[in-house]
């Protein structure tokens, strides 16, 4: 049932894209942007690899901050997304690279301090 319904919906869209060049162009633009954003996100995720903010912070706060300055905004975003460092979405919208890096440092610092207390449990 659902497969036939979806096939019907897609046929309406493809027919419109073929018959209406303006609509077709807008569809192309939207899909191209999605592909570009997705590819960039993938590249950033690959570049950060196994970089773990909490582990790196434990090695030394200053060295950690220095490491972050070498990363671009997309890579910083990838770290934040991968480790869910912004659950309250405080960094929603356009945020500077410096603010992203500061946020990561702050979250890592708090986690490290909490863990240090746990070791004294």
């Amino acid at each position: 049932m659902i497969d036939k319904t979806l096939a019907g919906v897609f046929k309406v869209v493809t027919d419109e894209a073929a018959a209406n060049p303006a609509f077709g162009k807008r569809m192309e633009d939207v899909l191209a942007k999605f592909a570009r954003d997705y590819a960039e996100k993938q590249v950033a995720e690959r570049r950060i690899g196994d970089f773990h903010p909490f582990i790196e912070y434990r090695k030394g706060a200053e060295a950690f901050e220095a490491q972050l300055t070498k990363l671009d905004a997309k890579e910083l975003r990838a770290i934040i997304d991968r480790h869910k460092l912004d659950p309250a979405l405080a960094l929603k919208g356009k945020v500077s690279k410096k603010a992203l890096a500061s946020h990561i440092v702050e979250v890592a610092r708090k986690r490290s301090e909490r863990d240090a207390k746990l070791f004294e449990y």
Partner: peptide
């Protein structure tokens, strides 16, 4: 993430 942290 937590497994990496545990290992550390």
């Amino acid at each position: 993430s937590e497994a990496a942290l545990l290992k550390d």
